[in-house]
Amino acid sequence: MKIRIIFIVVVVLALLAGVPWYGSASIVQFGIDALLTATLAQGWNLIGGYAGYPSFGNSVFYGLGTYGTAIAMAQFGLPFWAGLVVGGILAVLCALLLGIPILRLRGPYFAIATLGLAAAMGAVIANLGIAGRNNGLILPLFRGDALFYELALGLLALTTLMIYLVSESRFGAGLIAIRENEDAAAVMGVNTTLYKVMALALSGFVSALAGGIHAYWITFIDPGSAFDATLNVKMVIMAVFGGPGTVLGPIIGAFLLSAISEVLAAKISTVAGLFFGGVIVLAVVFMPKGLIDVGYGVRRLGLSYFVQNIRQNRL
C-alpha cells in the first residue's frame, strides 16, 4: 500500500517536472504561477488549516521574501540563492516579532489584526531608500523559465513534504489540538504560544521563498505588487477550496482554481471575474470542507453528501 502511494507521488512529480520539456512555454509560465500560488496556499495551510488561525497577513512574508531577494540582488549584487536566504530570514524574524503579540488574539480578532499587516509593511517599504521607495527595484534579467519552474516545483514538493512530516508529528498533533480547543490543549501540556509562533514562522519561511523566486522571475517589483492584499484572499480561498488541514488539499485547490481562472480568462475575458466568483460561491455552499472531504464524503453518502452539507449550514 505504502509503496503504491510513493510510486504514484514519484510518477506525478516526474510528470510535473518534465513539463518544460514537453509542455509549451505558456504552460510553463502558467505552471510557475500556479506552483508558487500552491506553495503560498500550503504555507497558509500550516497556520490557517492545522492551527486554525486564519491569517490574512501571509502576503507580508511573501512580500518580505520578494524584497529580501530584490535588495540582495539589485542593491548588493549578491547571487540569487543568497537573496532567497535573506528573504527567508527576514520573513522568519517578522513572523517571530509579529506572532508573539498577535497570536494571543483568537478567532475573528486574529484575522482582523492580520488584515492590515500587508498594507502597513508596504507603506514601510515605500519609505525605505534601500528598497527603492515606492519606485520598486529592478532585478537582472535571467533567460531560463525552465529553471524557475523547477525551483517552484521543488519548493512546493519540499513544503508539502514538510507539511506531511508535521502532520505525522507531535508538533502537528499539538497544532490540531490548538485548533479544536486551545484551552484544553494548554491544559494537556501543549505549549500553545511556542507551537503557534513556530507554525507562523514556518508558514512565513515558505511564503518568503515563493516570493523570492517570483521576484527574480518577473524582474521588477514594487510595494503594490509585493504586498498585494488580494494575494491573501487568493491563498485562503485556494486552501479552503481544496481542504484546509490536509496534506494535499491546498495543492489541489490551487491547481484547479488557477486552471479554472486561466481558462475563464482566455475564453470569456470580460465576465471571467464573475464566473470565478460563482465557482467559489458554489464550492463554499456544496463543499465547505474542501474538495478532499468530497472525496470520501461522496463515497460514504453518495450525492446526499451535498444535501447534508447544505442542511448542516442551514442554508
Binding site: I5, I8, V9, V12, L15, L16, V19, G23, S24, S26, I27, F30, G31, A34, T246, V247, L248, G249, I251, I252, F255, L256, S258, A259, E262, V263, A266, L291, I292, G295, Y296, R299
Partner: peptide
C-alpha cells in the same frame, strides 16, 4: 486521506497541463 487524494492530484496535474492547450 492518501488514497482519494493521490487520484485527485493526478487529475489536477492533468488540468494544469490541459488548461492552456489552446
Amino acid at each position: 486521506l492518501w488514497k482519494p487524494v493521490t487520484g485527485m492530484l493526478g487529475a489536477a496535474a492533468l488540468a494544469l497541463a490541459g488548461g492552456l492547450a489552446v
